[in-house]
Nucleic acid binder design. Structure first.
Lengths: 198, 198
DNA sequence: CTAATCACTGTACATTACGTACAGTGAAAA
DNA sequence: TTTTCACTGTACGTAATGTACAGTGATTAG
């Protein structure tokens, strides 16, 4: 049953957010399911972790990406895009952290992660291309600036998601302006009130 | 014997760089030592990993940090500092990556990592302070930009250490110039004279 | 010369978690 | 009624961690 599978993934998610060591037994118990069923429905450990990751990405947050392209102003579009990513990462920060730490992402080089990275790169590239920019190096930089690793690092212990998003957006803007000739980037002065263009 | 311990740490290092799964048995065998001895000399798994991390940091590369402070020009000093960090991270990239992936750093929150992070922050703060800047937020940004996570992300698959170092130094320079009033940064500013800084 | 200490070895054991095999059960469909 | 299906409980094999214990060879102390 699909609903059973969903329950298992949800249980895994909760278990990941707990302090305890991540164990399939614990997940199965929390989901009210035998461990054998867990293996049958979700595959092995790595498959389950990837399922959690997929579920996370699919469960919203990144759906608003097309909104960014609605802006005719390239700078605003880029800023919106950055904000969407930052928000997503900030909200699910501890979960993604845990997934990274468990090797679901990174060392394991799970297919899903690479694919998502490539997708993010494509989105950034599209936006850059729309601005008439074709700079691989800049693209690398933007990719790194909008990566979870960087945003997580920047967030540190005490920093609000909005704060982090603003900082990343600012850095992205600076990086772009540094490389694009006609950079019509109208970044507001720092002491000025945040012009939240929701 | 101290020399035995060093051999174990070296063996662990080599084992980490191999593709194989990291196992104490393998380390002991490679070091030509019984596993019991390994436990006696290096403690448990986490302790061994931290020992590798310590050994890495101590074995040079970060020794040139004082050089950065020799520059009277603040921009050059900062750039030198960034280059030192980048170089260190780039050279030992795969090893540090593996250590991260194994949870020696991050989830485990090993004492050594937090301490080293704090130390890096202090160094950056000192340099900033010397420049007459006291901006916690900027400090956060520089810390994130010079973190291993970001540099690793930026390096991607095909990028030379020098290339990465240059890019990070550039970003650091931009971030500083964006916040410091008398930013005498040699970086060519774009035509937009956004000197609205108080 | 003998004894004691020391560093290390080999083996063996308990523990935990993973992944799989197998037989069984209750319900729904043929 | 029989078959199929989804799931359960149990049990097993494997791998790795960490610890206990007895023993060995060399160096040092008495």
């Amino acid at each position: 049953m699909d609903e059973r599978r969903a329950r298992i993934v949800a249980a895994a998610r909760e278990e990941l957010l707990s302090e305890r060591r991540f164990t399939l037994d614990a997940v199965a118990e929390r989901a009210g399911v035998s461990r054998v069923t867990l293996y049958a429905l979700c595959g092995d450990r790595d498959a389950l972790l990837e399922a959690v990751y997929d579920d996370l990405a699919a469960s919203g947050g990144l759906l608003r990406i097309p909104d960014a392209f609605a802006f005719s102003d390239n700078a605003s579009a880029l800023e919106t895009l950055v904000t969407i990513f930052c928000h997503f990462y900030s909200v699910h920060r501890s979960l993604i952290r845990r997934l990274h730490a468990l090797g679901a992402v990174g060392a394991g080089e799970l297919a899903g992660h690479a694919a998502r990275n490539a997708r993010r790169r494509n989105i950034l590239a599209a936006l850059l291309h729309r601005s008439g920019v074709d700079d691989e190096r800049l693209l690398d930089t933007l990719q790194a600036l909008t990566s979870f690793a960087f945003i997580d690092e920047l967030a540190g212990p005490g920093r609000t998601p909005d704060d982090v998003a603003g900082e990343v957006a600012n850095l992205v803007g600076l990086a772009v302006a540094d490389r694009v000739p006609g950079g019509s980037r109208g970044r507001p002065a720092e002491q000025g009130p945040e012009s939240e263009t929701t």
